[in-house]
Design a protein around this nucleic acid. Structure first.
Lengths: 143, 143
DNA sequence: TCATTTTCTGGAATCAATCAAGTTACTGAG
DNA sequence: CTCAGTAACTTGATTGATTCCAGAAAATGA
């Protein structure tokens, strides 16, 4: 898990000002992959004592735009964020409880799949989401 | 394009009551693949003269649950609906204008991909969304 | 035709996210 | 270390998409 200094360096390398909310958000997302905005807000507030929801929204947007975070939004879910960027990994989502896990991309580069008919699009990414039931929910439904 | 009688038959086969709003929604989605809820509401209102937004939401939910429609929600988009169901096809989405096109699934059955590590999940679907730029937007950005 | 149950109506409410004006804080130059 | 400039944060208000809800209307089968 990166230190505050690491986060400061990441921010500077991305030409972003180093602020407490930004460091707190980076730390929160590193510690809680796939967390939604509301829970990130809660973690950041516990960390800093006070921070506006607007700041968290703004920071998440800025860090995502800078490539320091990745935003995902599986169907039926709110926006979620993760710190694991740049490897084009995919996700598996439980239809029952919503838990999300990372799935390494076999290719690693985008796009990792070729459309049977690209309709003339210039394709730059193949987003893959595996849907199913997690071990915990599979056991529950088998009972 | 199916007729009203076809829609009535589809509804009965799905054990759903045959109502005007339902027939109008089915017709609207058949005519406008990947339309969002608000535009479906507009088309249905033009068709029936009056219908509550609640009815359209309820109908879309019921028809999706019955397997007569499919709901998609690309990241950053609202809920959209299509009548093409059962063939596990994918989509390509333009990052610029948002246009969506169907992409046939090379396998046709779910799940059509195998996760490198399924984390013990029982996977039943691999949702694939190709992201890129459509022909119209590619030309525009090249100018 | 009628009873039953589902569906629709017409708002109200909720939720996630954005907008906006003013204040605060970070940064680089001196 | 100070200061000017500008980005970031604060504190609400607002928006858009969707859901909730009580009561009325309509579809269905007997």
């Amino acid at each position: 898990m990166p230190t505050a200094s690491d986060f400061q360096r990441m921010l500077r390398e991305a030409s972003l000002r180093v602020t407490s909310p930004r460091i707190a958000v980076l730390s929160a997302v590193h510690a809680h992959p796939h967390a939604d905005t509301d829970s990130i807000l809660g973690v950041v507030r516990a960390d800093l004592g006070a921070v506006s929801h607007q700041a968290v929204y703004d920071v998440l947007r800025a860090l995502t735009a800078a490539g320091l975070l990745r935003r995902i939004e599986p169907q039926g879910s709110v926006a979620r964020y993760e710190a694991r960027v740049g490897d084009n990994h995919h996700h598996v989502v439980c239809r029952s409880c919503g838990v999300i896990a990372d799935v390494d991309c076999a290719v690693g580069l985008t796009p990792c799949l070729t459309a049977s008919d690209d309709h003339g699009f210039t394709i730059d990414e193949a987003e893959v989401i595996y849907w199913g039931t997690c071990p915990g929910c599979t056991t529950a439904t088998s009972l």
